[in-house]
Simulated assay, not measured.
Amino acid sequence: MDNNEIGDSVGTLDGAVIAVAGAGGPAGHAALLRLAQAGATVIGADADPERLAEGVDAARYAHGGATVIGDTVDLLDGPATTRWAEGIEKEFGHIDGLVHLVGGWRGSASFDATDLMDWDFLEKLLIRTVQHTSLAFHEALRRSDRGRYVLISAAGASRPTSGNACYSAAKAAAEAWTLALADSFRKAGGEAGPSAAATILVVKALVNDAMRAERPSAKFAGYTDVRELADTVAGIWAQPAAEVNGNRLWLTKKP
């Protein structure tokens, strides 16, 4: 499914409660703002409290009256992630989404120069955090009438390059895990179809204004702006669960 199938029509998210994992980075900041603009109550989590607070404050300031909360959570800690999910549901009564924006990259000049220490690093950030958040939020999302789990992935998972073996393999594993979550939602929906969905958004890479300022001559060809990504994320809730569950939505050219 291509991103133009989502379109520019983003339905209201009034009353929705959406958690954002990895909310301290530029993509997280953009997602907090966009989801708040759409009317959602947004709870961001990050291991860096300062970066998280910047995004939360910016979203609150830009959209007065929005409920935007920041929680410092170590998503590599499974029990802590579960407590985070349980706390959100206890406070607000329901959870309608988890947006997974935890990222990281390491690569090498060639395949034979691959350092498996990079795998150890990326396995934690790109796979373990997906496992912890999906398991922690699964039941709450399944109970919601519009539950969504949104994973941000990379085109390299489908066509790995020689210097990105660890990164591409970790992204592919995270996608497989998310598709297993989608199958769980499908089975839970039975003949009526799923009410919750797990979806993968695929980018080549992300770009933001700070990156453009640092490299004014760079073209960033094929990159997705973090604001465009945030618009697409918010649009997931406007699509029927059955249409997006278990699908990859491409924001870049398919390899």
Rank of each mutant, 00 (worst) to 15 (best):
M1H: 07
S217E: 10
R148D: 04
A80G: 07
T67A: 14
A234L: 02
T12Y: 03
E5K: 06
S195G: 11
V17Q: 06
F92S: 06
A180Y: 07
P194L: 02
D2H: 14
N3A: 13
E191V: 12
R51L: 09
D209T: 04
A170S: 14
A241N: 05
V233M: 07
K254M: 06
A210K: 15
S168R: 03
T41H: 03
E191Y: 14
R146Y: 00
T72E: 09
A80C: 04
P240H: 07
E54F: 08
G44F: 09
D209V: 01
R215Y: 07
D48E: 09
A38P: 02
P160G: 08
A241V: 07
P49C: 00
R248G: 00
D74N: 15
A16N: 09
A234N: 02
A30T: 06
E54Y: 07
R142D: 05
S184W: 10
G22R: 11
D8P: 07
F220S: 11
W105A: 06
A176W: 10
V202I: 13
I88P: 06
A30F: 02
P79L: 10
Y223A: 14
D46C: 13
I6M: 13
A242F: 08
W84L: 07
L229I: 14
W105R: 02
K171D: 14
E91K: 11
T67F: 01
T41W: 00
G190A: 04
H29M: 05
E228W: 01
D183W: 07
L76Q: 10
E175N: 12
R128V: 11
G93P: 04
V17M: 02
I236N: 01
A21W: 11
W84Q: 03
S110K: 08
D14P: 00
V73M: 04
A157C: 03
D57T: 12
A230H: 08
G64P: 05
G11F: 08
S108A: 14
R83K: 14
S158R: 04
L151M: 12
D231M: 09
L76E: 13
P49T: 03
I6F: 09
I69M: 08
D145N: 08
S144F: 13
L76R: 01
A172T: 08
H29T: 12
G55M: 07
A27Q: 10
P26C: 01
V130K: 06
W119E: 01
M211K: 15
